[in-house]
């Protein structure tokens, strides 16, 4: 068990970071190079002001028309994404580990906040799965991996919650938490989770075209 822990917090952790950062870096590099090579015209249309206007509408809850119409999804979606970003980065235990390894630290979450966020993320995952499996138009375009991705998120969050409250069997939950977290991180560049980065690229291009060329709002 201890050896597994050493493995998970050592080589596997570095491997997952390498896969995540390396994978995303290579993807972005290829994307930019290929765009430059084959679709260089796209650079001619980029417009910072259009991008900022559009991103501002899409990055805040209910800023776009579709968000105002799909209120539950917007709420769940924003809670989910905020939780998914804040939890791993600002959780006290994570920051402590980083401090112990590299001597740097930053603000951490306190009190009930991590628990509330975790529960929100878990509920959102369940909601997403429910939505995917019950709405015909979403079921029609769903692949097995689409159902698997929320599970990939549920695992580290649920086990993290479990371990942090020292519920029975928490050592196993702890190690599962670390491993599944690393799996999630590693999976990002290779699955639709890469939308966390690629989504900005598609948004930048679309909002530039809409804002500048077409003088229209894309939200």
């Amino acid at each position: 068990m201890h050896n597994l822990y050493i493995l998970a917090t050592g080589p596997l952790l570095y491997l997952s970071f390498a896969l995540f950062f390396g994978g995303m870096f290579i993807q972005i590099l290829f994307l930019v190079i290929e765009t430059y090579r084959k679709e260089r015209f796209m650079f001619s249309f980029l417009s910072l002001s259009s991008v900022l206007m559009s991103v501002a509408h899409w990055l805040f809850p209910f800023g776009s028309t579709v968000m105002r119409r799909e209120k539950t999804l917007t709420l769940m979606g924003f809670g989910f994404h905020i939780g998914l970003f804040i939890l791993p980065v600002f959780l006290f235990d994570h920051v402590l580990l980083i401090y112990e390894s590299w001597g740097v630290y930053w603000l951490t979450l306190s009190g009930m906040v991590p628990d509330v966020l975790s529960v929100f993320v878990l509920s959102a995952c369940v909601y997403f799965l429910f939505r995917r499996s019950t709405k015909p138009e979403i079921r029609y375009i769903s692949t097995p991996i689409d159902y698997l991705i929320p599970l990939l998120v549920i695992f580290p969050v649920a086990t993290g919650l479990w371990a942090s409250h020292r519920l029975p069997g928490y050592p196993i939950a702890h190690i599962t938490h670390i491993l599944s977290g690393e799996l999630l991180l590693s999976a990002i560049p290779f699955t639709r989770l890469s939308h966390m980065v690629l989504g900005f690229f598609t948004r930048v291009y679309t909002s530039s075209e809409f804002g500048r060329t077409r003088a229209a709002h894309d939200w």
Partner: peptide
């Protein structure tokens, strides 16, 4: 090019 690929990859269905 990458525009099409990015669209296809980014779509979260």
């Amino acid at each position: 090019g990458s525009r099409l690929k990015a669209y296809m990859k980014t779509c979260v269905h």
